[in-house]
Design a protein around this nucleic acid. Structure first.
Lengths: 345, 345
DNA sequence: ACTATTAATGATATGGGTTTCATAGTTGTG
DNA sequence: CACAACTATGAAACCCATATCATTAATAGT
């Protein structure tokens, strides 16, 4: 590996001081045109790239932010990252992406590394910190980090804390989906998928219950089945649901699109037609939702916006601009082919 | 934002010199146990996090590598990133993820930023640099970068250059898929999807042609239809193919899983049964392939390995370990439900 | 013409670590 | 006991930028 050129090399060759070279680089003070030209020529000759480490060290900003995600393989997260990255580029940030792969220790491991690297902001999305049962040591640790670095929690649950938060109001989304099914004449509605200690699950179940009760309906206990968020889980959970052929729901709400797709597969395998025999509704409006047959009725999560607003928030904090602590995005229902009128008895 | 503690603060409070603190931090020379304890106590009291910028500046390594991807929303890339990130963590690297969103300028824009940030390695996957028609200025620029920073191209085409490369042998994969269809009795085989100037497309088409010719079959010109890599493109291309009801292939090879899924949808919409009426084969073995009905016959791309080997290569270069310039992974065929015996005429 | 600004530039401090070199204190060994 | 070989520590240089302060040259104002 070849050694990098430094500002001293440039100064020497251009026969000026490093201060003047710095002025040319940053346009921070007037430099005589002839001097500037001379310096520029040397810079271009060597394709000089100023060392960002040295710059960051004194400027006390790195132009770097990070997102910590539990599983980049889950298409929800790339969508959020996409939006965040767009905004980051506008604001001059480069992005660290830290994938914890669900490994509990890595969240705080990455946190330490990122603090040492003096990132200008950290976005947590999913993961333990956003869990309903998040251990308090972790909360403590993140709070500490937040004293020196702007931290934003996306779709988390720590409402009472003073963390900055951006989230999509999943309760509203779940209510929307439930109302939709009720409007279609469904009375027997089930909910499947999602770990029971995850905020995203809890909020949805609660909202579905509430909405049903508003219409004098109930969410039967046997019809709330928790599990993972994967396609396979959706399949298994749906099969469990359908095993009881005496009592079958006419519609199923799923915690996300993955489980919904699994549910569709399970139902199809048993010869059920969707939506004629059973309606299935997902959550997230991931690219998958139009990829399946039938196309999935689902709820948008404003994924790009989630990322965008999170980065914007970091930018505002760093530039001492006024900000609110929480940003709420409202989901919308997208009706496609997987939901239809309740079958007549 | 609160000011960070420095090594000088620690040294002062522990009544030692910064050198000694540094020794304790890095375990680079013996320190008396009592001194060490005293220092550790102060470090822990302040939750001291040494500034990685200062360290990197002098050490000339940042523990940071980057991946430049064209579209993180395409599930192929998160899979590769996943594998890369796992390996990165093992080797002590943190990851920049740069999403160009297909914007031509950003590749070199990010390249500049990453060079200034003195990353320890850059992985290019997809994007212009890996195109068959990559502009030579960009090649030049990346070559220059490669003089100071290890650069690895994943699934690229620049065979004649001296870049480090890791790729999945797509020709072998395409041949495998073709052979599979031939074995099933198909004679009328089409290929859809993919931009005609992308390496990934070119190699596959070439391999399919070759394999067919080996069996005295031909790939009809009208049955090679190029396009985007999206679900929608797959749908459109398949529709175009099926519009000619006189001459219809009995099997379709798709450039990736996305287009294959689109193709399945188009065929289903026309009432064709898969695989009874028409067989469809994808490429990538993305998580999607088991999410659709019928499940997709496809070719693995060893996504995690691609990422893993790319990072490993960077590590080897940085540590002056012997490496080969190219690593080739061999894809495998995964037969699922979307391919079956050719229909009898 | 003479002082008051502004332009143009250089010298030096600074950021926060690591590394090298020097020195004092210990232990070992013939 | 004298001298070598370590151990333990500090002082100072270094990494490579930016920022501040000082100085000189050029222009402006009265």
């Amino acid at each position: 590996m070849v050694k990098n050129t430094t500002i001293y090399d440039i100064a020497r060759e251009a026969e000026v001081s490093v201060s003047t070279v710095s002025r040319v680089l940053n346009d921070t003070a007037p430099v005589k045109a002839s001097t500037r030209d001379k310096i520029m020529k040397v810079i271009e000759k060597h394709k000089f790239q100023p060392n960002a480490l040295a710059r960051s060290l004194i400027k006390k900003e790195t132009g770097t932010i990070a997102m910590i995600v539990p599983d980049i393989t889950n298409p929800f997260f790339p969508e959020v990252f996409y939006g965040a990255n767009q905004e980051a580029r506008d604001k001059g940030y480069t992005f660290f992406l830290c994938n914890t792969s669900g490994d509990d220790d890595r969240e705080s491991e990455y946190l330490t590394i990122l603090r040492e690297k003096r990132v200008d902001g950290i976005i947590f999305i999913g993961g333990r910190i956003n869990l309903a049962n998040c251990p308090s040591e972790l909360v403590q640790e993140v709070l500490e980090a937040a004293e020196t670095i702007p931290v934003v929690l996306v779709n988390g649950n720590l409402a009472k804390t003073k963390f900055h938060r951006v989230y999509s109001d999943e309760a509203v989304g779940a209510a929307l989906a439930t109302q939709h099914l009720i409007d279609l004449g469904h009375r027997d509605i089930a909910f499947i998928g999602g770990l029971d200690f995850m905020t995203t699950t809890i909020q949805k179940v609660k909202a579905v219950k509430k909405k049903l009760e508003d219409h004098d309906l109930t969410l039967r206990k046997e019809w709330i089945i928790y599990g993972e968020f994967s396609i396979q889980a959706g399949r298994d959970l749906m099969n469990k649901l359908l095993d009881d052929s005496e009592h079958r729901p006419t519609a199923v709400l799923c915690v996300n699109d993955f489980t919904a797709i699994g549910a569709i597969k399970a139902a199809s395998d048993r010869g059920l037609r969707i939506p004629e025999d059973i309606s299935i509704v997902g959550f997230d409006d991931s690219p998958l939702s139009t990829a399946v047959i039938p196309e999935l009725t689902t709820v948008t999560q404003n994924t790009h916006e989630l990322g965008k607003y999170a980065v914007e928030r970091i930018y505002q904090i760093n530039n001492a601009m006024p900000t609110k602590r929480t940003t709420v995005l409202t989901p919308e229902l997208i009706v496609r082919q997987s939901s239809g009128p309740a079958p007549k008895k």
